[in-house]
Amino acid sequence: MVVQQIANGVVLGSLYALVALGLTLVYGVLRILHVAHAGVFVLGAYVGVLVYLPTGSLALAIVSAAVVCSLAGLIMYRFLYRPVLGRPPLVPLIISIGAFMFLEDLYRLVMGPYIKSLPVTIRAAGFETAAVRLTGYQLFIVAAAAGLLLGLWWLMRGTRLGLAWRASAQDLETAAAHGINTDVIIGVCFVIGSAIAAVAGVMVGGYYNQVYPSMGSVPAYKALAVIVLGGMGSVPGTVIAGLALGLAETLTMVWVGTFLPRDAIAFLVLILMLLVKPTGLLGRAS
């Protein structure tokens, strides 16, 4: 039972980490809370439905979702955030919340208010022992998440772009003054963050076999909890916090039972964290 819940927690935590990464990347360079990011996640799920149902190809669904969402992320940066750079942080925050609500209603108008199913089947074999059972799809989620995270890690640590990116996240202005086109770096953050959210959207839609307009609300606030837990702007912190939250949620089911609503746990953990270490797991006081 416990081993099974740990396995479930890792699957759930991988998804949380993927959704929250986009927030972390954007917060890292712009110090903006990109709440509308959860709207991008839902867009990814819908593109997944629109592509998967006629073609039956999960790979095609994921790639299309990533491409469409990258563009959407870039457009949001260009037309929502860039015009208000340098304004007090409340301005982009309110814009972002407004954009998120707009997107939810847009999906409701265009795709209808009802749940669409995304009946993904995958040929990969599952994994089963006496203590734990993982479906092929669950294994696929964990493997895809691990692959994406490793790729991102390589990009940040092993490439020239990654060096410019880390410098920009530490001091955007000084990076710009040293010949780094920070506008491009910020755009890259939106593209990569949105593409990863799109992948997560398709995978979550397939995991629960449902896609609906407001499916971004819960991930939106959980992602906020995850990035605060991880230490605002820290990529490894986000991954650890995402996994920790997934595990906390499934394990409390074992030990505390359903007495506590699962979605409340993110915020209990968040409150505890803020009391103990306000800068988050891997955050540093600036």
Binding site: A175, H178, G179, I180
Partner: peptide, 15 residues
């Protein structure tokens, strides 16, 4: 850049 090494800081200079 506080979290970059000395050499990485210099690489940014020559970026």
């Amino acid at each position: 850049f506080p979290e970059l090494t000395v050499l990485e800081n210099l690489r940014i200079g020559a970026y």
